[in-house]
Design a protein around this nucleic acid. Structure first.
Lengths: 152, 152
DNA sequence: GTAAATTAATTAACATGTCAAGTATTGCAA
DNA sequence: TTGCAATACTTGACATGTTAATTAATTTAC
């Protein structure tokens, strides 16, 4: 009474809980929930928030670099930057050394937005640390940082 | 000669490399690159691939559950499921016990798609394991699984 | 130096994400 | 039993994601 599956040679996929891309996505959803609530108050999207942070962190920076650091594609970035410039969250100026580029820097209103949310952001992180454990969280961040440098 | 910043009380944000949501996103981009290449050959999107895997894993399942497991919102899922049903990747049937629901299950063509990509998928994972280290990878997956259950 | 290849950014077209509102059904409470 | 809240989607409108094509400027190769 051989079961038909006996000769099955198909390679089974990993269970989704052990699929790294899916696990990263699910974990991120958990962490993003309170942050989304926070940003909703300011009518600002997750993407614009990432752009603000990257531009704030890097200072005057070209769009290609923002795209890489904020995990956005250039076409999306073009539209987002245009809207954010309109809203006075950032400024943009042509690069005199390379006329193809424009340099982006944070504007007062953008900086104010960051300052406004920084305490709540820190509070969310602290709550996470309390529940997840300081050591595990640091270790997780180390592993994620290492993962970003892997070349596949 | 006091620097103006001397009295600044603003809470600084964490550097983006140590921001968990951003680190999760960047890490995911690294891992997804070869998978996107793989899926592009079959003209299938990342989202549809996740749906296929979840439906395959869970068997006949309602859409709300798929949405949760595949990290999609219901409106997106409605459209994706419609397209995938059209393409015969999945089947959908009304739940006799609850007329609001419909149960989704994988179709032959969907299963074939999974079988087709399983070896390459496994190969990608192996390459990752080689570069990243088996132990670190398992630990990372453990931490991500734990993170998903945190309540903020 | 000049043509060809490369880079930075943009645009267009369509897929997917997201929020708000709507429909049908079910569960629950008075 | 009735009516009201909750659930499971669905739809519409607009934001963002994604690919391919395009433009302008720069770099490279000859």
């Amino acid at each position: 009474m051989a079961k038909p599956d006996q000769y099955q040679l198909a390679v089974p996929l990993r269970p989704t809980t052990r699929s790294l891309p899916i696990a990263l996505l699910r974990a991120r959803e958990t962490v993003m929930e309170p942050i989304r609530d926070m940003l909703a108050k300011s009518q600002i999207s997750e993407q614009k928030w990432r752009i603000l942070r990257v531009v704030d962190e890097r200072g005057p920076v070209e769009q290609t670099a923002i795209a890489k650091d904020a995990c956005l594609l250039l076409p999306s970035l073009t539209r987002l930057i245009a809207a954010m410039e309109q809203d006075q969250l950032i400024h943009r100026s042509p690069d005199p050394k390379d006329k193809r580029r424009s340099m982006v820097r944070i504007a007062d209103k953008g900086r104010a937005l960051i300052d406004t949310h920084a305490p709540e952001s820190q509070d969310i992180f602290t709550r996470l640390e309390d529940q997840f454990g300081h050591k595990d969280l640091e270790h997780l961040l180390d592993l994620l940082e290492k993962l970003q440098d892997v070349k596949l």
